[in-house]
């Protein structure tokens, strides 16, 4: 595959125009534009890393970069040079990226706080969903009781009881964790019951003729049988978790990414709001990347 394609040069041409524009004076409230330049540098580094070291879809990668640089360039021109948009509602990129530099510590704290809730809620949601779903799916009597219950409770969107949970739980953080937990637990529980119930007959027969008891069946046969579906569902699980988390944080938290965004919205400080949204995007991308690593490991194991 050709690295130095036509797209490669177009992308870099747009990037150079962008850098020149960033360095000439315009409608900017911050003194220096270092943060945006560092941001551009980091994006370029990731691009070059993927292009040269990974060498996968190199032309498409350059095409994507044309779009990325074009959006940044249009944003830059519209806000700092042409003054086309309302300066409060649409802040310029220099100001937005400056937030990352000036509020570095606060943003990291918000991410850490959010991740803590996300990990706790997701971990217990998946863990209990599996731990209870396997025996309930396998033992007919339990299944006949809990499958209809799960069928009723699973479709209730957790966001509707989030405000009530926040009032009910002693701390806001525990309420958020419970919202994520319930949002992950019910779908996992239900899907595990269904998966166990529809286990391939030959796996079931192979286990039956070895005369396995319920405990061995659940631990040695059903658990490894359903694990791949749990892992392949991790991306959807993660998206649900982040959605519930940021929603819960917007309802009354004092920390976290959702709080950061809603707090600055209340002050009409949209520069920080846009920075917060970009931050969520970065965090979700990193989570996705992490899940990809887990899934690739799991595929090798399969």
């Amino acid at each position: 595959m050709k690295i130095f394609s036509k797209s490669f040069f177009i992308a870099h041409f747009i990037m150079i125009v962008l850098i020149i524009l960033v360095n000439i004076p315009g409608q900017k409230s911050v003194e220096d534009s270092k943060a945006l330049l560092v941001g551009i540098f980091i994006i370029e580094l990731i691009y070059l890393y993927k292009l040269i070291l990974k060498r996968k879809n190199v032309v498409a990668l350059s095409d994507i970069m044309i779009i990325v640089w074009s959006i940044l360039l249009l944003w830059e021109i519209a806000t700092t040079q042409l003054n086309l948009l309302h300066p409060v509602l649409v802040p310029n990129p220099e100001d937005v990226f400056h937030v990352f530099a000036s509020q570095y510590n606060m943003l990291l704290l918000c991410v850490a706080s959010s991740m803590e809730l996300l990990v706790i809620g997701t971990f217990f949601g998946i863990g209990l969903g599996l731990g209870l779903g396997l025996p309930v799916g396998w033992i007919p009597r339990l299944r006949e009781i809990f499958y209809p219950i799960a069928n009723v409770l699973t479709p209730i969107p957790p966001v509707v009881y989030a405000p009530y949970l926040i009032a009910l739980m002693p701390t806001f953080r525990s309420a958020s964790a419970v919202v994520i937990f319930l949002g992950i637990f019910w779908p996992t529980f239900l899907s595990i019951i269904i998966r166990v119930n529809s286990i391939e007959p030959h796996i079931l027969d192979s286990a039956k003729v070895l005369n396995v008891n319920n405990k061995t069946m659940i631990r040695k046969i059903l658990l490894p049988y359903v694990i791949p579906s749990v892992i392949s569902g991790l991306k959807v699980t993660m998206i649900t978790s982040v959605m519930l988390l940021t929603f819960a944080e917007m309802m009354g938290a004092t920390r976290g990414m959702g709080f950061y965004i809603i707090n600055y919205t209340h002050y009409a400080n949209y520069t920080n709001v846009v920075a917060g949204i970009i931050l969520v995007g970065i965090v979700v991308t990193l989570l996705n990347w992490f899940i990809n690593i887990i899934q690739n490991k799991a595929i090798k194991w399969q």
């Binding site: 030959h202 027969d205 192979s206 003729v209 070895l210 005369n211 046969i221 490894p224 694990i227 399969q302």
Partner: peptide
Amino acid sequence: TGPGTERAIVFQHYSLFPWM
């Protein structure tokens, strides 16, 4: 009355657990 380990069986297409 049911399956038992005094009878070992090998099926036509399967028998093993793919994750082991």
